[in-house]
Nucleic acid binder design. Structure first.
Lengths: 198, 198
DNA sequence: GTCTATAAATGGATAGAC
DNA sequence: GTCTATCCATTTATAGAC
């Protein structure tokens, strides 16, 4: 990790984000020091502050990027689908969610575990993005209920239950394990489909 | 919070556990100092160490008590049920889980968020208890599959998915809100039932 | 842009008086 | 059993040399 002195603005910035993501996910925001991050990046502590005003803004930028990414990716995916078929939309949402989140376990971990460590202002911003993402699922469920394709007692609770269930994947899935990504997707989609129908 | 000097061994011990549970749940283990705990309890820092050897053992005792409690409570509940009816067992498991966890949101929060902050030895102990609890659900599912009452692709994944879904309740439920506890129980049970059948 | 050195605050834990 | 005082390590963040 030792770095000879010199200017590396093009690589240090991204490396800080990448290292912080890994360390925050593994040990938790409060348990990781700026010195640990600097060491792993390969610079001294002072250098970090050329790229960020403080530790809090580092956490926020990681969480904000993740939420922006997931929203943008889903909207791109949604654009390729028939907007009038809630069953197709729901299947793609479930599969998309698992695929997207399993590719970014560290970011997902942070997004759901470090909400407490955001400042009130930052919390409000992230919370708004989360609500927006939940809204995507809820409107699919509502549309399905209106078309009498889905049967469920409460679309708000179902939204939260489905997302909680899907998020659980990242707590246990390890690539190269007993099941392939496709099998995991299929198993979860099977449960979601049945839970919202007859 | 001020406390006059004197001996209070009977109340200080339990108060430390109660206060630590609240503070750890709200701010996270790493973000809470022993000084904060002492202040909230109404003693000085030094006094805490009459009741615990270090901060880590405080976290462990909270998590260990919670896991022992949930296992004991479920076994008591199970003893009143017909062991040969997986459908009845599953419904009671789902309802029990929601009821028990919603009555202890702080303990649940800690049990699922602070695993990273346990020492390796303590982590192994808590993990064993969690696996034991998951095993209770999985054996219900396996029995139901054997009796051809349940239809599911993978009992291990289904176990984790159901628990993740049920745990999600504590992230949003607030008593006195739109739905009663009974309605929440019924809604979740409805989803679980459908997810593991036809 | 990075380094070294340091400020100023806070952390866990302990010793000894009462 | 609790308090006060303190040790010692570590924290975030900054200042100024290169």
């Amino acid at each position: 990790m030792a770095r000879t002195q010199g200017s590396h603005s093009d690589i240090t910035g991204p490396r800080i984000q990448k290292v912080a993501l890994q360390l925050f996910a593994r040990h938790g925001y409060a348990a990781v020091s700026m010195r640990q991050i600097a060491k792993e990046v390969g610079v001294q502590v002072g250098a970090l502050y050329n790229y960020l005003p403080d530790k809090q803004s580092l956490l926020f930028s990681l969480m904000n990027k993740h939420m922006q990414d997931v929203l943008a990716a889903w909207k791109e995916q949604k654009a390729t689908l028939d907007p009038c078929r809630p069953d197709g939309l729901l299947e793609e949402f479930a599969r998309f969610h698992i695929r997207f989140h399993m590719a970014r376990p560290d970011a997902v971990f942070i997004a759901y575990m470090e909400l407490r460590n955001l400042s009130p202002e930052n919390f409000a911003k992230i919370e708004a993005l989360r609500k927006s993402y939940e809204g995507e699922l809820q409107s699919i469920l509502d549309a399905g209920v209106a078309q009498r394709i889905f049967t469920l007692r409460d679309s708000k609770i179902t939204t939260l239950a489905v997302i909680a269930m899907l998020n659980g994947v990242i707590t246990w899935y390890r690539s190269g394990g007993r099941l392939s990504l496709e099998e995991v997707e299929a198993t979860y989609w099977d449960m979601v489909r049945k839970a919202v129908t007859g």
